[in-house]
Nucleic acid binder design. Sequence first.
DNA 1: TTGTACGCGTTATCAC
DNA 2: GTGATAACGCGTACAA
Lengths: 338, 338
Amino acid sequence: MKPKITLKDIARELEVSISTVSKALKNSEEISRDTKDKIQAFAKLYNYKPNNIAVSLKNRRTKNIGVIIPDIVHHFFTTVIRGIEKYANAKGYNVLVCVSNEGYEREVINMELLANGSIDGFIMSLSTETQQKNDYNHIKEVTDQGIPMVMFDRVTDRINCDKVVIDDAQGAFLAVKKFVESGKKKIALITTDDYLSVGKDRTEGYKKALSHYNIPLEESLILKLPSMEVEASAFDTFFKTQEVDAVLCVNEIFAIHAMRLVHGMNKRIPEDISFIGFTDGLLSKFAMPSLTAIAQHGELMGEEAARMLIEKVETENEEETFSTTVLEPTLIERASTL
Amino acid sequence: MKPKITLKDIARELEVSISTVSKALKNSEEISRDTKDKIQAFAKLYNYKPNNIAVSLKNRRTKNIGVIIPDIVHHFFTTVIRGIEKYANAKGYNVLVCVSNEGYEREVINMELLANGSIDGFIMSLSTETQQKNDYNHIKEVTDQGIPMVMFDRVTDRINCDKVVIDDAQGAFLAVKKFVESGKKKIALITTDDYLSVGKDRTEGYKKALSHYNIPLEESLILKLPSMEVEASAFDTFFKTQEVDAVLCVNEIFAIHAMRLVHGMNKRIPEDISFIGFTDGLLSKFAMPSLTAIAQHGELMGEEAARMLIEKVETENEEETFSTTVLEPTLIERASTL
DNA sequence: TTGTACGCGTTATCAC
DNA sequence: GTGATAACGCGTACAA
């Protein structure tokens, strides 16, 4: 209906040259008041806005930042995106979100797509499958091209770039500390397989804390699930065979599920069994009883990642110096602990 | 380190013209086997990929679709995005997500930014503030420019475009029907102010259903909150002053909150009071007791919206015919109803 | 079979 | 003060 108006259109209409229009709209001193007024009025009337694509082509800067996350229906990742958006928008950047859906293939495809000029830099968190395959060539290619990259939460040592993570071991430590201080002795851990970097760190923190408090480590008190999916039977047999008085869960869902199960076994929460879950999301707040949680500070993480990325994007600096920001987790105490 | 390689680079290196390279890479019949082989091999070696920006400028097609949502930390919207992503990626499109954060200003800014060439079309859901202000000029400007637009969930009659919505009235009807069939008589509604299109439709469906089942409408059984935020005191006085045996809530959070309150008043759920909540999200599944919910089919909604948009984007068709897809909600029965 | 020229919309440089 | 020209990277109609 009202096709977009260009510099050329204005120039033709006002019978001046394209460059005059361009300068006038940038309020250049070279142009006379008269013509500037005329051109600016006309531009406003027809609501002229420069074409981003053309500007990008010219500047070799898109003002877009690409975000690759494993899953968008996941509270933690959405809070990170919110943080990224917040900071990026304030700096005049758009956020291009792509979801790998926890798959290697989609991660590669999405990155290749965006890397071909659509974005000025990446912020990403690795998909489960990528971590399993342990194959990071697609990421190496991107960084080798000189495209700035910031990884968050699920990171790898194999790539040299800026990173922002939570001290997951410390989070687990905090949880165990809380349990110990409220008199718990048989502290269980429900987690996933070790290929997830976060799972590994949390397990480590759990073990370290036990040894710190002189509690013998019993491998039978660690339940390792092969994936993020809840396997009811595994939970069932675990709680039927093990005697525990405190449970640390690697995510909310595991914790909620376990609490329900325990509730059905006529045990009291938190008196008989206490619970703490990682990732302070909606479920923790609204669970019955509400769940004591280790907050991951996703929004802060997003802001920090965006800050680091934009810093790199906007400095011509050729020196390759990378840093890793480690955020401290926080224990949010609720009704599932004493 | 390895700056991006262009057609020009290849041409210079192989001492042919740029267009020869371009044609060779598109496997044009015009080019001899020999040169094609040579060029293709070279391109692969240096991992040549066409610059998206340049292609976009040329084609006046970006292969990006812009999505504007009110809030990303909201399960419903993320499921919609998942649906959009799924369909769009399959069709070779990227998804550019911007969050209005329920604000008019950010909605306008984001749309203007994206509208200037960054995207081929919009998929959006209105922010609360925009619906309150009832000002849609920014959207009209976009559609007037001929940029395809699909609105979902929170839509308005004031804009002529494709839409995809859930039959919210029908959803409320289903809920009331369920209550009535299990013998409930005093059916309450907890909702938000009417400026939210969805809230209005749901209230309408609730009233229609009551009249259909010959239950007198009592305005005192409708609790209207001014925003999506939970106001504990309002809930408190409501349940202390009103005699109810069933509650329909316009969202999960309200429902969970109300259930907790009622639980504390020593009433049994669902025997004494039954609950149904809109938007079947994580909270509903994991609540105690689990919450019977009206599923909004967000993912389907996203796919449908993306389908409609890409259809419009890819057809040159000048005729302006718009359609509205109405999805049917589904009642997911859980433990909070008889 | 290969190359030239042009246009997409913008900006920067330089000439008039 | 204003305008012509080149360049960003690509694709394509047309010329050689």
